[in-house]
Amino acid sequence: MSRSANPSDRSGSGGYRPSGRERWAGAGSATAILALLASLVMLAPAVTAPQAEQQALRLFDLPPEESAVPEPEPKAAQPAAQPRKPVPPRTSTAPSTPAAPSPLQSPARQAASSPSAAPPQLAAPSLPEQASPQPIAPSAPVRTREPANVRDSYASALWSHINTRRPRGVRIRGEAVIAFTVDRGGAVHDVSLDRSSGNPLLDRLALRTVTRAAPMPAPPAALAGSALRFTITVSFDQTTNR
């Protein structure tokens, strides 16, 4: 049995066919638009703005190896395995659902026992006794007089503030680390790319994740004397693609 219909069915129908002009008008216009896009691609290397921007930012990059004090090492904090969501990915709701407990109340025990748990859980910035490799740097001598839990709870509030205002991804995986300073009023300064994702698009989105969240919540008075410098890892599509 011949499954495809006889090709002559198409042409043998009394010549009733769409006109060639109709047929190609759409194709032509689409091609023209695509050609325009393609020419933009060709021209694009000349547009070096983002590179310049990065270079400028890198001027005050702070290489971690220069740190005298054990700096929070982002790589250690990255789960080697796929970060998993606590809720099934099978038809799971997107990451913003409250399924992941906020870092404030995240159990230290869980964080310690399963280092590959979902980062927002793992990364509980509170609870000084926690064994997690993440994420609060040991207090530098300069701020020994300030209560650690004040700083940690402010860090938690800051994370929550940035996290709720995070942008949508672009279906490309990657990870960038952004450093920034928060002043007494909550304004953000010295936003820099601490570690590039290797993708200028993601780097820019990561920078914007911080800049667009400004102004941040004003730090509590107890922290007023210290320079509030933070780093944050912005992780793109680690759980959604493949």
Binding site: R90, V142, I162, P167, R168, A179, A227
Partner: peptide, 23 residues
């Protein structure tokens, strides 16, 4: 200043609408 930097937990960015269910 570098010594003072506090690492915040990572922000996980997804590409699907927040209220969508994803397969």
């Amino acid at each position: 200043m570098a010594q003072d930097a506090t690492a915040l937990p990572p922000v996980e960015i997804g590409s699907d609408p927040a209220s969508a269910q994803t397969v």
